[in-house]
């Protein structure tokens, strides 16, 4: 099994914006405060005490795949996994020195095949390797502090949101490397926004791909219409939501660059 290095899967934009945040003085202060006030322990305690922890005993398949993902992406310690009942379909990394994963039950319910689960776990392991958990804590600390200052978040949001969006590119790359499946990698981008029936009819990554025209239209508009591009930039400053067509397009580019389509490997 090939072991991937961070440079293999971290998207350059993720890397750039992450460095911007980490090298800021605010980040330094937030981390200092975290250490001073024992916040990491409190934060971990909150999850440990309020979410059921999944283990190899309760979820053997998940842990088998997680161990494999850790090996593939060079993470020595298998992180703990917690589950929470949440109507939002989320999976996330949390913690600072001891990162852990949190799945919403809704998200777990939606993942019906091992290959997708493996890809998703790979994405989270890659996120840990790229220090996303630390940056998320910093951004959370900044948000929290900014909440006490009138309009405080106006100053910090653009920098944070830029990174929050681009971290998904890294996650998608890890998913792609783990599954070597273009269609699955593209499909998982839409897993949170489409009902399973509709998702199954999208035929992602094939010549019949039902989303690709929208992606191409979006990119064309952004390249050719300066007003639209400006509006998008302005909107991006105060929203961390990813632009799905961009994510889709980045995955396609990654597959083409790495010629991953022909490197299929089964689980």
């Amino acid at each position: 099994m090939r072991v991937y290095k961070v440079d293999d899967f971290q998207h350059p934009q993720d890397s750039k914006f992450a460095n911007d945040i980490l090298s800021s003085k605010t980040a330094e202060k937030v981390l200092e405060k975290f250490h001073e006030t024992n916040l990491e322990e409190a934060y971990t305690y909150l999850y440990q005490s309020s979410c059921p922890q999944l283990t190899a005993q309760t979820s053997p398949k998940l842990f088998e795949l997680l161990a494999k993902a850790c090996k593939m992406f060079g993470l020595e310690k298998i992180p703990s996994v917690y589950v929470t009942r949440d109507y939002r379909e989320i999976v996330a990394v949390r913690g600072i020195n001891e990162p852990f994963l949190v799945f919403s039950s809704e998200y777990l319910r939606k993942i019906t095949d091992d290959e997708t689960l493996f890809g998703i776990l790979a994405g989270q392991v890659a996120a840990i390797r790229c220090n996303h958990h630390t940056i998320l804590c910093i951004t959370w600390g900044i948000d929290f502090a900014a909440g006490f200052i009138p309009y405080g978040s106006w100053a910090t949001d653009p920098m944070i949101n830029n990174w929050k969006r681009c971290r998904y590119f890294t996650y998608d790359r890890a998913f792609s490397l783990a599954t070597k499946s273009r269609s699955l990698s593209l499909r998982q981008v839409l897993i949170n926004v489409l009902l399973p029936d509709i998702l199954n009819r999208m035929q992602n990554g094939t010549s019949q791909d039902a989303f690709i025209n929208q992606v191409e239209d979006f990119l064309e508009t952004m390249n050719n219409n300066k007003t639209q591009a400006l509006i998008k930039k302005a909107l991006s400053m105060y929203s961390y939501k990813i632009w799905l067509p961009e994510r889709y397009s980045e995955i396609n580019k990654f597959f083409d660059e790495w010629s991953l389509d022909n490197a299929n490997q089964s689980l």
């Binding site: 909150l46 309020s50 979410c51 929470t84 949440d86």
Partner: peptide, 16 residues
């Protein structure tokens, strides 16, 4: 901090 985040858990401190 705990209290700011507590609302996001369906049953806070369910394990203890």
């Amino acid at each position: 901090v705990l209290m700011g985040t507590l609302k996001t858990f369906p049953i806070p401190f369910v394990i203890p």
